[in-house]
Design a protein around this nucleic acid. Sequence first.
RNA 1: GGACGCUUAGCUCAGUUGGUUAGAGCGUUUGGUUUACACCCAAAAGGCCACAGGUUCGAAUCCUGUAGCGUCCACCA
Length: 883
Amino acid sequence: MITLAKTYSPKKNEEKIYKYWGDSGKFNPDNLDLPKNAKPYTIILPPPNITDKLHLGHSSMLAIEDLLIRYHRMNGYRTLWLPGTDHAAIATQNVVEKKLLKEKKQTRHDIGREKFMEEAWKFMKTTQSTILNQARRMGASLDWSRLAFTLDDQRKTAVEKMFIDMHEAGAIYRGKRIVNWCPHCQSTLADDEVEYKAEKSILYTFKYDKNFPITISTTRPETKLGDTAIAVNPKDSRYKDLIGKTFKANFCGIDLEIKIIADHEVDMNFGTGALGVTPAHAIIDWQIAQRNDLKTIQVINEQGKIKNGFKKFSGKSALETRKEIVKKLVRSDLIIKEEEIENNISICYRCNTIIEHLPSEQWFISVDKKLEKLGGKSLKEKALEVSRTKEIEFIPARFTKRYQDWMENLHDWCISRQIWLGHQIPAWYKDDEIKVQVKTPGSGWVRDLDTLDTWFSSGMWTFSTLGWPNNFKDNEKSGDLTKFHPTQVLNTGYEILTLWVSRMIMMSLFAVNEIPFEKVYLHGMILDQHGKKMSKSKGNGIDPIEMIEKYGTDAVRLSLLIGSTAGNDMKMSERKIEGYRNLINKIWNIARFVLHQLEFEKPTSTKKIVDLTSSDLTSADQWILARMHQLNTAIRKDIENHEFSAAGERLRKFTRDDFADWYLEISKIETNASKQIILSEILRDLLRLWHPFAPFITETIWQKITDSMLMIESMPEKTKYQKYSREADSFTLIKQIIIIIRNARAQYKLNPQDKIEVFVQAGDKLPELEKEKNLLKNLKTSIEKIEITKTGSEIPNAFYGQVASIKIYIPLKGVVDPEKELKKLKRELTKLKGFLISLDNKLKNQQFISNAPQEIVAKEKAKKAKIKIKIKDIEKQLPTESK
RNA sequence: GGACGCUUAGCUCAGUUGGUUAGAGCGUUUGGUUUACACCCAAAAGGCCACAGGUUCGAAUCCUGUAGCGUCCACCA
C-alpha cells in the first residue's frame, strides 16, 4: 500500500524530480521516442540579459513557455525548447564598469580592452550560471545540450558571416549621419535606446548680432555656434523677401555665415517661425541641410565639450558654454524673450546621461534598399508583408497594428557601437580603403574597433541557435535548421516588440529566407500589488526564488499563469501565491485520499474506463465522467488558443468543485465496483492535465503510482470520455436537492444534529430518484426521513418547521436537463423570439431596407442567416428535449 | 502631438461572434474539528459593469463623445 505525507513538501521533491527529468535526457527532442514524421514544436527562449539574476517577469515567461512545451511534448510533437543568454552589450559593459570602479577603483581605460574583457567574461560566467539555475528551479524543461550565448564562438561565426553577407548584398553600408551619442558610455545609441525625460527648460529668443535681420528661438544657444542657415516656412510672408540671401553675423565672437532658406518642415507658429539650422546637432536640421546643400559645422565633440576652433569656448562643457553665451547676449541686449517651456530632453537608457546629436561615421543597415536577395524588395517591405499576409500572427491581435506602424516609420538602423563588450565589426581600414572580412587583409590594415549593437546578434537568435550558417548551404537548410525552423511561438514582453521582434523578422527573412516564428505571444508586465513596476531601486520587487523556497515552484507558476491574459499587465502579491500553494496541497490530498481509500496498489486496473457500461455506473459516476469529458476537450481548446488562464481556472474548478467536493465525498458512501477504476483513471488523467501547469507535484505523485515518467506520457485521448458526455441528468437532480437542503438549513439556522424530513415531488424522474434515495440520505444531509413521490398531492406544500425539526418540500417540475444544455437551448429560444419580433417590425416598416445604408442592410442579412441556421439546430433538438 | 489599452463585488481579475437572473479567487460575516486536506468543509452578504448619448426586440459586450489611469511611438527648434 502506498501512502503520502499529510502535506506536500515542494522542497523535498523538486530538486530530485528535476534531476530525474534531466538525467533521462528527454528535454532533448532527439531522445524522444517519436515517429519520423512527428510534427515539430519549437520555442527559442528569449535570452535573458546577463546583467543580473532573473525577476518575476522572466519567471512568467518561463512558466508560459514551459506550459506550452510540456503540453506539446505530451501530445506527441518533436518538442524543442532552446535555452540561452544575451550579452546585452552596453548594459553589461556598464554593470562591469561599475563593479570595477567599486571594487578596484579603476576605469576600463585604466586596465585596457583585453583585461577588461577578461573581467567581463568572469562576470558573465557567474551571472549566467545564476540565471540558468533559476530557470531550473522554475522547472523549465529546456534542452541544455543546445545552450547558446549571444557572444560564444558559434554565434561569433554566425554574426560575422551575417555582417559580411549583408554588406555584400548592399544591406549594410558605412555612412555619415547624425547619431545619438552618449558622452558617458562613449558610444552611439539606436533611436530606441534613447529615452526622454520631461523637463522645464528656457527657450531663448534672440538675434545672432545687432545687425541681423531675423530673430530665432532655441533652448540650446551653445549649438548655435554651428549654425549655417535660417530656415523659414515657404508660406511665411514675414520672411519672403529674405529667402535666398546670405548674411554674415558675429555670434558672441564667432563668425557665422547664415543663408536664409525655405523649408516646409518649419512650423510657422513656433517661436518666431524662423529656425536656426544647426546641421551637426539636430536630426531635422541635418535633413534640412541635406536638402539644401548646407555646410555642416560640428560644435560639440564626443566628450560633450566644445570643439577646437571656437576661441574661448573651446574645451568647455556644453552647459557652461550655454551660460556664458546667454550672459553675453544679455549684456549685448540681444535677448528678446526668455520663457520657461516644458520640453523633452533625450537621455541614455542605460546611464541617464543627456544625449548629444553628432555627425559621425557609422555602420548602418538599410531598411529601404531594394535587395536582390529578397526578390527586389527591401527589408522593411518584406517584414511588413509577412504580418499583412498573417504569415506571422500576433497575440493579442492589436499588436499587429503597433508592429506595422513602427515598421513603416523605421529609419536606417545604426548598428555600430563604440564599446568593447560585443562582436567586433569585421571591417578593416587602410588609408581610404575599407574591406569587410574576418581575417586581416595584410600589413597596414587596421581593424574597426567598434562592436555591433546587441540587437544585431539577438536578432539572429532563432537561426543562429539552430546551426546557421553551417546548416545553411546553397540556400538549403539542413540539420536542426530543417527540423526546428521556423519556430512556432515567440513569447516575449510587449515592450520589446519593436526593439527585438522586428529585428528578428528582418534578419531571418534575409538570412534563411523565411519567417523566424509563426506566432508572437506577447505577455504583460508583472507589477507589484499597487500596480507599480517592480524595480530594484524601489525595493518593491518579489524575488521568484524566495517565493519558490517558501511556497514551491508549482504555486509560483500557477500564480503567474492563472489570472493573467495576453498583452495585459498583472499585479502580483505574495497572498496570491499562497492561494495557489493551497490549491497544490489540495491536489496532493486528493491523490492521498484516492490512494488511501482504495488501498490502491500498482499496477492496477484490468478494466478500463471505456469498457464500463451504464449498468456498472451509478448516477454520480456518470456525472463525473461527463464532466471529465467536458474538461478534457475544453482544456485543449483553451491551450491551443493561448488562453492559459482560462485553462487553469477550468482545471481548478473541476478538481476542487466537481471531483473533490462532490465525487470524492460520494465515493465514501457508494462502493460499487467501478469506483476504483474511475477514481484511479480520473486521478491519473488529472495529473496529466495538470502537468504542464504544475509539473513537480504531478510528477511526484505519478512516481508513487506508476513506473513511467509523467513528463513524456500522453495527454488523455480526446475521445476517452466521449461516450459519457450526455449522461449527467440524475445526479444533477441530486445535487439540486442537496443544495436546496443546505440553503434551508442555513435559512432556518439549523444545527447539524437537527433532523429534517424531506419530501420530493419527482415527476418523471421518480424511478431514478428512488434508486438514489440512499445516497441522498447519507450525503451529510442529516435527513431523517425522505419521501419521493411522483406528484405533490399527498405531501405538504410549504416549508414549515420548528427549532429542532423541519420538513422540506421540494417540487421538481417535469424534466430537469443538464444545466448547460438547458441554458444553451433557452438562449437560442430567446434569440428566436427576438428575431421574430424584429422581423415583424421590419416587415411593418418596409422603408428600412430601401433607406438604410448598405452596411447595415448587410449586417441585418448576416444576422438573419445566422439565426436561420440556429432555428434548424433547435428544431433538431426539440423532439428529444420535449417539454 | 500620434496610436493603443484599461475602468466590472472591499481587493485582484474573467466575461469567447450582443441573448433568461453578470462570474471566479482572495477578503468579510455565519456555521462546522464530517476517519484526504484548517494549506479544510458548508453557506451568506456584497455590482446603475466609469459617465453621457446612440444602434437594437435585447448592450458589460457594438458605435460616438466625456473623464480618470496606463503603455508605446515621435519629438519641436
